[in-house]
Design a protein around this nucleic acid. Structure first.
Lengths: 357, 357
DNA sequence: CTGTTAGCGCCTTCAG
DNA sequence: CTGAAGGCGCTAACAG
């Protein structure tokens, strides 16, 4: 419920300025400024300070940031620029991470979505530059390589979820190899030896990284990756469904399905259900992403690996706001942690591996 | 790839000011201002205009918005304030809608997430006010009633996905009654007469509205809502799963399941699969929300109703930026459109209704 | 058609 | 311990 201050239209009452406070308190505006900003290098008598603060309170004075921005040559604002419309289930997390870090530093977040169009990207950067943001965080919706205009070298910039061909700007990337490794270990440690990998879109950065992790985990366990079933899909639930049916129709039945992401795992759930197989009793399933309102809610709750969107956003803003950008390595991997839930169990019976050589 | 303008550190080269342009072009800064802003009420000789533009180009001059903001007493910025951390799968859509509208108007979006804490909310509003945003869009993550501090009457404000007890601020709300009605009609039109409603959390605004729509559609079709199965859950997939099992175990089997949201529909899919029932051959299912990367991807693709997050955000920003706020009704319903996909078919056999009276 | 002057609201020298 | 003066970069008002 909003109680109108007065019956007139909003902002009718002139908002008090520092000069108003000064006049009312019988001091100069310089003094007011010192009090407002708690300047310790200046000594203000307790007397004066108190009077100023009283007037500030009485008038409801608040400093005008627009004026302060002009004079300070900084705006306590960082630009969050995304490479496409940030409306997927994860983008909010990355924005929230950047936001929370910024807020902690008394800084605001200006969000600008671009399209995949270069013109638009340029316009977005220019707008941010014109507004004199202190720094820019450029975020991609899906992990990828990007090409960016040189304009960005005019302001501290950190990349999130993407990287430049020449690594000329520091970036935060999800540790998908580590994630793939951890996901595989989860299954290995539960006793599985036949772990089919229902991978995502072939060629994608994430797909390749996760696959590397998968292979490394297998190898470390003395298993030959070449002996395992690996199929590629497209990261959509349907492809998980189709791939699972293919695998179920195949000659060798794995005891676990490692999926490219949670949506594919969901497709696997559906196909498994149709085939009369139970998760995890008949088949263990592991996803990837920890997709909000999905992974933790399906039945049985899906074991998965959390994509560190929030933390990437947070980390990038932290670097920007603590002026670390110059000292950063080209790429920083942010851990993707395993979220063990209910979709993994020990394999039913220890079936012998496809080849015992 | 970023090509550094020069080898020094960023911003080393002083960015040119309007005075620089004026000096270089041999005119006054007023003239430069007129040219830059394309002021039609002022007449500038083509000669002068061209020279100024050349210098602007040569120096790479761009107006400093911070300075302009101070002088213009407006910032071409609107604040997007959310009642809690906007990191769910939908919040990005609402931000994107507001953003796209703002961008069209040459306006930027300052995003501030608050927590459910009043202190923090107050701090967020004050920050936005201090920064002299031209307007504020207050968005709730889930549709609900809210209480807001009177501070907001100092700036044009529109609410999204929430409303005030006294309707003193205009708001955009999803037309969930219309959505519930449309979803039910989808099933009715396909020939279903026994439509169980697996509703969401009892008492929630959305639940009540959708239920009203459901009942209205039934009644219009000469069906008695009281004869239908209605169960309440909590909007999570698990409750859809549990409720579906309950219904399947019951004495009367409906031919269709109308679910409180897509996650519950997903739970229904899982339970149905386990029971050996196929969607839509054995049971039609309709969800609600059109949850991104979920509804359109499950197998079969889920028929649902799209929650108008993007459009609510867009609409609110439009009102704010076209100064319509004063003329708005207390509540504006934004249509929630049906998205027919593959999870609805005609009922297998026309079983007689539970009671034929 | 163009220039001069003043001021948006704040902060930072530099004097007292 | 406090005040006066000047300027951040831009635009509006008023001359000429």
């Amino acid at each position: 419920m909003v109680a109108s201050r007065d019956s007139g239209d909003p902002r009718a009452r002139k908002v008090p300025t520092m000069a108003d406070v000064a006049r009312e308190a019988g001091v100069s505006s310089t003094t007011v400024s010192f009090v407002i900003n708690n300047r310790v290098d200046q000594s203000i008598s307790a007397q004066t300070r108190r009077r100023v603060l009283e007037v500030v309170e009485a008038l409801g004075y608040r400093p005008n940031r627009a004026a302060r921005n002009l004079q300070a040559q900084r705006t306590a604002t960082i630009g969050y620029l995304s490479n496409e419309r940030a409306d997927n289930p994860f983008s909010g997390q990355s924005i929230a991470g950047a936001h929370d870090s910024a807020w902690k530093h008394g800084t605001a977040l200006l969000v600008v979505n671009t399209t995949r169009d270069t013109e638009r990207l340029l316009a977005g950067i220019n707008d941010l530059l014109d507004r004199r943001v202190d720094a820019i965080l450029f975020a991609a919706v899906g992990t990828r390589r990007v090409i960016l205009p040189g304009l960005l070298s005019n302001v501290p910039t950190v990349l999130v979820n993407c990287y430049l061909p020449d690594d000329s700007l520091p970036c935060a990337l999800p540790d998908d190899e580590g994630g793939g490794y951890a996901a595989t270990r989860l299954l290995l440690d539960a006793g599985h030896r036949e772990i089919a990998y229902l991978a995502g879109r072939p060629g994608a950065w994430a797909t390749r990284a996760r696959l590397r992790g998968y292979r490394r985990a297998l190898t470390e366990h003395g298993l030959d990756p070449k002996q395992q079933i690996v199929r590629f899909g497209n990261y959509m639930a349907d492809s998980g469904y189709d791939l699972t049916r293919e695998v179920l129709a195949g000659p060798v039945l794995p005891t676990a399905l490692l999926c490219g992401n949670d949506r594919m795992a969901l497709g696997a759930y559906l196909a498994l259900g149709e085939a009369g197989l139970r998760v995890p009793q008949d088949m263990s399933v592991v996803g990837y992403d920890d997709q909000p309102t999905l992974a933790g809610e399906v039945h049985p709750r899906l074991s998965t690996v959390r994509l560190p969107y929030y933390r990437m956003g947070w980390w990038a803003a932290e670097q920007l706001l603590s002026h670390q950008v110059g000292r950063l390595p080209p790429q920083t991997l942010i851990a993707a942690e395993v979220v063990p839930r209910d979709s993994v169990a020990a394999p039913r019976a220890s079936t012998p591996p496809p080849t015992s050589g």
